[in-house]
Design a protein around this nucleic acid. Structure first.
Lengths: 194, 194
DNA sequence: CCCGTTCATTGATGTAGGTTAAGAAGGGGG
DNA sequence: CCCCCTTCTTAACCTACATCAATGAACGGG
């Protein structure tokens, strides 16, 4: 039993064991260095990626400004789902913030799994898509309704380890504010807390 | 062949015809009046809803302010997917902006479909979830990267009929800005256009 | 036809967060 | 040990959008 099999069995414990083993075995291990790109604008996202350990961020560039879409760390998936599903060119960058050990599943292998007799992996795919939808709906809602301070508090509450692994100016870019603004927000929070 | 069967056959033309007929037949017709609520805060979302014709909006209330999550018109689905999937209480309101004829599919019937032998509807569910994810990811991206003018232009470009069916102050609330700001944005657009 | 209501516009002013610029604090490599 | 480089902070000023208040336009009912 290898590492990724064990992890997936725990993560997808509601699914039949043989199916999950089959799923895990479809992935291949790769290693990336800090600063390496998993994906760059203009490319097509070929793989669904599971991070065994490491730290990556996705971002877009617009008018020379960087907008961070998400951070993915140990035991999380990362991909450009849009580019992956449609095999269309991406406008996203995925860059390693630390050395990473990843497991990749190509579009072809994923579809081969989906198209097995009786489509045993569609439910897994459905549930993963439902999860990722919920996540992004929540994020939209927060961007619409919450000010920067609230968004920051929610983030450090939900993913407290992020501030250990990601510099503050990147967290600011993720929140959609300037690094200077996050600094001010943090200052005003410590003031009101004391 | 009834109306919804025909519509679904066209919408889901990549799926086997019998499956789509079965899916369509699981829905029940209902009628709602302008001002009626399909869902209110504290309730549990029991149904996935397809709008045959009509016009609804979803919104949240926070500190007495309304934030519009989406508009759904003829031939579109609407639900609180989060509350629907988990059968958890919602913080969302869904209100009719016009009289509506809708088709509803209850959580129980949906799951009965999912759990049929060989799970023939998981692929449909997966693709719907993938679609809805893409939509909300796009929206998050726009909220993060685009200013109000750009968000407005994208909206009227993507859904030009909306401004015929939805008053301007609701469009402003959807964009996350004050009605007065939208008025000013529109003014500045006509000026630069001429 | 008038009147009340609803919606859009406009102007004045307030505020969150952006921009620019500078300095301070840490930390790894020569 | 020092230097450079990265990161964080602070301050002054700027901009986009919010808020408040008033006016105007459209519309539907009595």
């Amino acid at each position: 039993m290898n590492a990724i099999q064990e992890i997936f069995l725990k993560m997808f414990s509601r699914f039949p064991e043989e199916a999950i083993i089959q799923f895990a075995n479809a992935f291949s291990e790769k290693k990336l260095k800090k600063g390496d790109f998993l994906l760059q604008e203009g490319q097509i996202c070929r793989d669904l990626v599971f991070i065994l350990n490491g730290n990556m961020m996705c971002y877009y560039l617009k008018d020379g400004k960087r907008y961070i879409d998400e951070f993915s760390l140990d035991y999380e998936f990362i991909t450009d789902y849009t580019s992956f599903i449609y095999q269309s060119t991406t406008d996203k960058y995925i860059e390693c913030l630390e050395d990473c050990v990843i497991y990749t599943l190509s579009y072809e292998r994923m579809n081969a799994l989906y198209d097995l007799p009786h489509q045993p992996f569609d439910r897994l795919g459905r549930m993963m898509a439902e999860q990722i939808y919920l996540q992004w709906h929540e994020k939209s809602k927060s961007l619409l309704m919450d000010d920067a301070t609230e968004r920051y508090l929610k983030l450090i509450n939900k993913r407290p380890y992020l501030s250990q692994r990601v510099p503050q100016y990147l967290i600011a870019e993720y929140l959609g504010i300037a690094p200077e603004s996050l600094s001010r927000i943090r200052k005003s929070l410590t003031n009101t807390k004391v």
